[in-house]
Design a protein around this nucleic acid. Structure first.
Lengths: 237, 237
DNA sequence: AGCCTGTCCTGATATAAATCAGAGAATTCC
DNA sequence: GGAATTCTCTGATTTATATCAGGACAGGCT
C-alpha cells in the first residue's frame, strides 16, 4: 500500500500565489490540518460537469485542464491551472454544481479542501474574502477578454493570442529572448482552447514555424519572435 | 436649470436584485447618502475603456451596454445591464482601469457610488462581501458558458442562444406562450453580441421569422416557439 | 413637405475554416 | 520488442461566414 503523501500548506510552493496567500497562524493551521492530499495521474478527473461541489482543489504540483462539453460532445477548454491555482471555487461560492470538468494533464499532488473548512476560514478572515473578490474580478476580466477575442478575431489571431497567454502563465525564459511554453498540449487541445479544428491548428503551427515566430522541440513549443506573434494577434496598435 | 433628481436606495425598485440586497440600517443609509444620481440619455457613456475606476454604477432605470473594442476598431458587446444591475465593480475590485466601455442604450437614472463608500460599507458588512463573491461567481459562470458557446457553436446556434439569454434577462411574457424581448438592439449590436456580421444577423432574423420561431413587431422581437429556438441553439439533448 | 441619416434588407462574390480521407510518426501498452 | 493506439501532418473538397455593393424604408430635422 502506498504511503499517504504529506504536505504542509505553510511550505507549499504555490500557496503564496493562491487565494490563501494572506493566511497565517490559526487560519493557516486550520487549512493545513483539514486539507486532504492526493496524488493524481494524467487523465484522472478531479470532478465532472454536473457533480455537486463539496469543496475546492488546490494544486501543489501538476497541471489541470477545465473543460466544458455540449450536447453534441464538442469540448472546450475553459482554463488551464497549475501549481498555486485553485479549482472549483466558482461553483462552491455560487452554490451550484460544477459547470465544467477538471482533468489532470500532468501528474501532480492536489489538495482537497471541504466547503465547511473554506467557509469557516472565511468567517474568521475577512481579508480572505477580499482576496477572493480580487481574484474573481481578475478572472472575470480575463474571461471577458477571451470572450471578446472569440467574437471578433479569426482563428489565426486567436492562435497567436493563445501562445501569448500560455507564455504569461507557463512561459520559461530561455537564452536569446526565447520563451519555452512549459505545458504539453495536443493540437486538438489547442483547438479546444481557441475554438478551431485540430487540422487548422497544425497548419498554423507549421506556418508560424516557417515564419520564424516559433520553434518546436519534441512536444514543446518555443516562442522565438514574441513581437511578431503579438502582431499576428492584432494587439497594440 | 434642471432639478437634481432624487432617489432613495431604500425604495429603489432594483436594489433587491442587486449586490446591495442584503444591506439594512446604517449601511443602507450610508449608501443612500453617498450615492450620486444622474439622468442619462441614449448614447451617453458612463465610462470608457482605459479610464481609471473611481467607483461603481447602479442602474435605477434604463439600459446599458458594456463593450470592448480592439485595435482595429472591432466592437464586441460583453454584457447588457438593466435596472438593479451594477457596472464597473469588476474593475473596482481588481483595482484595474476599466477594460470596457459602458454606453446607455435606453434613457434612465443611474447612481454613482464612490470606491471609498463601497469599501467602507464592505468593511462593516461581511455579508456584502459574501454577496459579492456569490455574484461574481455567477457572472463568471455565465461568462465561461458564453466563451464555450463562442468556441464551438456556429453563428446560427449562437444567435438562437442569444435570443434565449435575452429572454432570461429582458423577457416579458405575452399571452399564448409568447415572450417579448424588452430591449431594442440594432442588427449590428446583435452581431456584436454573437460575433457575426450584421448582414448575417439580418438573414437569421428573416429565416427564424419564416420558420415561425420569432415575430418582429416594429423594433421588437417576440419569441413565438421557444422550444424550437432551444433546438436551434443545440441545447439539451 | 422634403432632405438627411441610419437602419434594414437582398444578391453576388470571396475567403476562412470545417470536414473528409489517408498516410506517416510517435507513444503507450503488453 | 512489436502491436496498438494516439497523435501529427498533408491535400482535396465543401460549407459557413465575411465582405462588397446597392436599394428600400423609416424616423428625425429644418
Amino acid at each position: 500500500m502506498r504511503k499517504r503523501p504529506e504536505l504542509n500548506c505553510e511550505t507549499c510552493p504555490g500557496r503564496m500565489k493562491s487565494i490563501f496567500c494572506g493566511l497565517k497562524g490559526d487560519e493557516l493551521n486550520q487549512l493545513n490540518s483539514n486539507k486532504n492530499v492526493n496524488v493524481y495521474k494524467k487523465g484522472q478527473n478531479l470532478f465532472l460537469e454536473g457533480n455537486p461541489a463539496y469543496g475546492l482543489f488546490c494544486l501543489h504540483s501538476g497541471k489541470v485542464k477545465v473543460t466544458k462539453s455540449d450536447s453534441q460532445g464538442r469540448e472546450t477548454i475553459v482554463k488551464l491551472v497549475q501549481k498555486g491555482g485553485v479549482i472549483g471555487h466558482r461553483s462552491l461560492f455560487s452554490k451550484s454544481p460544477y459547470a465544467a470538468s477538471a482533468t489532470v494533464i500532468e501528474d501532480g499532488m492536489i489538495c482537497f479542501v471541504s466547503k465547511e473548512t473554506v467557509n469557516s476560514i472565511i468567517q474568521q478572515s475577512p481579508s480572505l474574502a477580499l482576496e477572493i473578490i480580487d481574484r474573481l474580478s481578475q478572472e472575470m476580466g480575463a474571461s471577458e477578454e477571451k470572450l471578446a477575442s472569440m467574437a471578433r478575431k479569426n482563428v489565426r489571431e486567436r492562435f497567436a493570442e493563445m501562445l501569448l497567454i500560455l507564455k504569461e502563465n507557463f512561459g520559461k525564459s530561455l537564452e536569446g529572448n526565447e520563451t519555452l511554453l512549459n505545458i504539453k498540449l495536443t493540437r486538438e487541445e489547442m483547438g479546444q482552447i481557441v475554438g478551431a479544428a485540430p487540422e487548422n491548428i497544425i497548419r498554423l503551427v507549421t506556418e508560424f514555424k516557417s515564419l520564424g515566430l516559433i520553434r518546436v522541440e519534441k512536444k514543446d513549443i518555443v516562442l522565438v519572435d514574441v513581437p511578431g506573434i503579438e502582431e499576428e494577434a492584432s494587439l497594440g496598435v
